[in-house]
Amino acid sequence: MSAPAPRPSRIVLLGPPASGKGTQGRRLAEAFGLGYLSTGALLREQVENGTELGRQAEPILARGGYLPDDLMNPILADWLERKNDAGWVLDGFPRSLPQALFLEEWLADHGHSLDAAVSLEVPFGDLLERTRNRVECPACRWSGQKSQLVSGELCPKCGSPAGPRADDDEENFRNRHSEFTTLTGPAIEHFRRAGILHAVDATAPQDQVAADILASFASAEAPN
Rank of each mutant, 00 (worst) to 15 (best):
S2D: 15
A3M: 15
A3F: 14
P4Q: 15
P8F: 04
P8R: 11
P8W: 02
S9C: 12
S9R: 14
R10P: 01
R10Q: 10
P17A: 11
P17M: 09
A18T: 09
S19N: 04
G20H: 02
G20K: 07
G22T: 02
G22W: 05
Q24F: 06
G25K: 01
R26F: 05
R27T: 02
L28T: 06
A29K: 01
F32T: 03
F32G: 01
L37S: 07
S38W: 05
S38V: 04
S38N: 03
T39W: 01
L42V: 13
L43C: 03
N49P: 13
G50C: 11
T51C: 06
L53R: 02
G54P: 11
G54A: 05
G54T: 01
G54Y: 09
R55M: 09
R55V: 10
Q56Y: 07
Q56G: 03
E58L: 11
I60R: 00
A62S: 13
A62M: 11
G65A: 01
G65Y: 00
L67E: 10
P68K: 06
P68C: 12
L71P: 03
N73Q: 12
P74E: 11
L76V: 13
A77H: 15
D78W: 05
L80T: 03
K83V: 14
N84Y: 12
D85F: 08
W88M: 00
L90S: 08
F93G: 04
P94A: 12
P94G: 00
R95E: 05
Q99V: 01
Q99I: 03
F102W: 00
E104W: 00
E104N: 08
L107V: 01
A108M: 08
A108P: 05
H112N: 13
H112W: 09
L114N: 05
D115L: 05
D115N: 09
D115A: 08
A116H: 05
A116S: 05
A117H: 02
V118W: 04
G125P: 13
L127C: 08
L127T: 10
L127H: 10
L128H: 09
L128C: 12
E129W: 10
R130A: 00
R130V: 06
R132V: 08
R134K: 01
V135Y: 05
A139T: 15
S143Q: 08
G144T: 04
K146V: 07
S147G: 12
S147C: 14
S147H: 10
E153F: 13
E153S: 14
L154P: 07
C155I: 11
C155V: 08
K157A: 14
C158M: 08
A166L: 10
E170I: 12
E171L: 10
F173V: 07
F173H: 00
R174N: 06
N175K: 07
R176L: 02
R176N: 02
H177C: 02
H177T: 07
S178N: 14
E179K: 02
F180W: 06
F180N: 04
T181Y: 02
T182S: 15
T182W: 05
I188G: 08
H190Q: 00
R192F: 03
R193L: 14
A194R: 09
A194E: 00
A194F: 06
I196N: 04
L197R: 03
H198M: 05
V200M: 06
D207M: 07
Q208M: 15
A211V: 02
L214F: 04
A218C: 04
S219F: 08
A222H: 11
P223Y: 15
N224R: 14
